[in-house]
């Protein structure tokens, strides 16, 4: 029981906004306006590791020349 509850607390989905900024959001929760899932869920660390491989340029999209 307790483990299941902890796992639910550490379940996240990777999200991205219009500026190609990536972040994480509690899995299963309604997404904040302007954010979309990229289709990867996992524990916090797994999500962060994945973000390292997909988000290479931290500049907001509108400022990339």
């Amino acid at each position: 029981m307790a483990e299941a509850a902890e796992a639910a607390l550490d379940s996240w989905t990777i999200v991205v906004n219009h500026e190609d900024q990536h972040s994480i959001w509690p899995a299963g929760r309604e997404l904040p306006p302007g954010w979309n899932e990229i289709g990867f869920t996992g524990d916090r660390q797994a999500c962060l590791d994945r973000i390292s491989t997909v988000w290479k340029d931290l500049r907001p999209l509108s400022l990339r020349s």
């Binding site: 990777i14 906004n17 990536h22 972040s23 994480i24 959001w25 916090r44 390292s52």
Partner: peptide
Amino acid sequence: PDLTADRFLPD
């Protein structure tokens, strides 16, 4: 990017 995503979250 990993540290950034960890600390800067959707508002």
